[in-house]
Computed example of a mutant assay.
Amino acid sequence: MDVTSLIVFLLVGAIAGFLAGQIVRGYGFGLVGNIVVGIVGALLAGFILPRVGLVIGGGIVGAIIYALIGAIILLVLIGLLRKAA
Rank of each mutant, 00 (worst) to 15 (best):
G33E: 09
P50F: 06
A16Q: 07
V61C: 00
V76M: 04
V32I: 14
V37T: 07
L81D: 14
Q22L: 14
I69V: 14
I56S: 03
F9Q: 14
L77C: 07
L80T: 08
G53S: 05
I65R: 00
L81S: 14
G57I: 11
S5H: 05
Y27S: 13
D2P: 05
M1G: 13
G70W: 01
G38M: 02
Y66W: 10
A14Y: 11
A67K: 01
L81W: 07
A42E: 08
V24C: 08
G33P: 05
G62S: 08
V37D: 08
F29D: 15
F9V: 10
V76F: 02
I56Y: 05
F18Y: 12
D2C: 01
L49S: 05
I35G: 06
V8M: 11
T4C: 03
V61K: 01
Y66T: 10
V36F: 04
F9M: 14
V12K: 00
L11K: 07
G30E: 13
D2T: 03
A20K: 01
G28C: 14
V8Y: 10
I56E: 08
A71K: 06
F18P: 00
L44Y: 03
A63H: 02
A71W: 04
L10A: 13
L31S: 14
T4Q: 12
V32A: 13
L19W: 07
G17I: 06
L19E: 04
I56L: 14
G17F: 06
G53R: 04
I64A: 02
A42K: 04
